[in-house]
Design a binder for these strands. Structure first.
Lengths: 223, 223
DNA sequence: CACAAATTCGAGTGGTCGTTCGATTTTCAC
DNA sequence: GTGAAAATCGAACGACCACTCGAATTTGTG
């Protein structure tokens, strides 16, 4: 319940029209304030991606932005709030670029996302680092990581169940367990890829897995 | 080239028999020295497992052992040396408990190891944290993590190739890629398990994957 | 026992951390 | 233009970091 939203989208601290008369006369943030925030979050993304949340410092972030550490804290009340802002922004950006859940097939969505991820290794590194740090105590990002797993499990579970209904799932495959497996394989193979990009092909690996789980479409029956 | 080996097994600092006469007259470590080292390494394992390498401090480790931070540094010259000692010890312990490479089947080995891992969540957490930290810059454990991936890929790749030779691999499955996939799935699902033990069954997931990759044995031909 | 080496530790090194405070500068509604 | 709020920052806080130094204590051997 601080004055600045920081982690939540800032929409509650505008003058908000005719505010009577006996008010402390709050003024909203200045013009460049919003883009300053964005710059900070992007710098924090860069720092946390390459050094981790624990290993990266506010000083590092401030240096990237080109401002003082104190000014940075004017926009985000704490380091953990900054991390949450980074995670929120990545979600917002992803949601905008990602296709709606059931537009194309699961396979195309997954492989397309994996192909796209190759162009943003920083994002992959961020998830890899945060997933590791999430298992440590008192990590402010662990809630986010947990929820991300839950969300992905449900999302892919639904998609796989839809395929199952059309008889496209290999017999014996449980859609929910396969969803967890897909997420696990994806995260795991990305870590291997980050450490050895020449040896690992993330898209190929996902393709292999999906080929095992999903059987080819035989067309609208052919009896 | 320091006096104490620390990261390598200490075997070079014994009196080593008749040492002439004009020598500084080195004496070996005292009786309890070896077990003190072990205690330190185990405490470090505990700390790094729960707080990560970056997040855990030498002070934390020293407190667990019940000694001063300074004394701890008498046994291990630096924090990174301590981490390497922890990793070496885990390898030594694992090698002792793990079955020889090609004694039983791959499936039994993998599932048995996974079942055993459930009883040592700290070890799993250590690997998860270190894998994440390994993708960050200047991490002393990244070499170890990279080599561990290489080793496991080769080990499982060989085992899967052996199965392939006996026609036990599902058609279209590449043994080396499946080996990387197995390692990825395993690591990934363990992270999910650490964050949500009730929802995730590591053994079940590995079983699912192996069922997809390996076809059941039909017995010695039956034409 | 005596002596030297191994071990222990308190104190301190220089450094970085996240965060706070107070004051100065910049912006902008009136 | 004026004044008040927003933005910026230098300085400093207390805490912690890995690591060093020198002196005390403990150990084992001759």
């Amino acid at each position: 319940m601080t004055t600045t939203g920081s982690t939540t989208s800032d929409s509650d601290d505008r003058p908000a029209g005719p505010t009577g008369s006996a008010r402390p006369a709050r003024r909203g943030p200045y013009a460049k304030s919003a883009e300053r925030r964005v710059a900070i979050v992007e710098a924090a993304f860069e720092v946390f991606s390459s050094k981790g949340y624990v290993g990266g410092s506010l000083r590092d972030v401030a240096d990237v932005v080109g401002m003082s550490q104190t000014s940075l804290l004017h926009y985000f009340p704490s380091k953990s709030a900054l991390l949450l802002a980074v995670l929120e922004r990545r979600d917002a950006v992803s949601d905008r670029s990602a296709a709606p859940p059931d537009c194309g097939g699961l396979v195309e969505t997954v492989l397309g996302q994996a192909r796209h991820n190759e162009s943003v290794p920083g994002l992959i590194a961020l998830y890899a680092v945060l997933a590791g740090e999430a298992v440590t105590a008192d990590n402010p990002g662990s809630g986010y990581v947990r929820e991300r797993f839950d969300r992905l499990r449900v999302e892919y579970g639904d998609a796989l169940r839809a395929l199952e209904a059309r008889g496209r799932l290999r017999p014996g495959v449980d859609p929910d367990r396969a969803a967890s497996g897909l997420v696990a394989l994806w995260d795991g193979i990305q870590v291997q890829w980050l450490l050895n990009p020449d040896r690992i092909d993330v898209v190929q690996q996902l393709q292999d897995y999906l080929d095992l789980v999903i059987v080819p479409d035989e067309g609208p029956d052919r009896t």
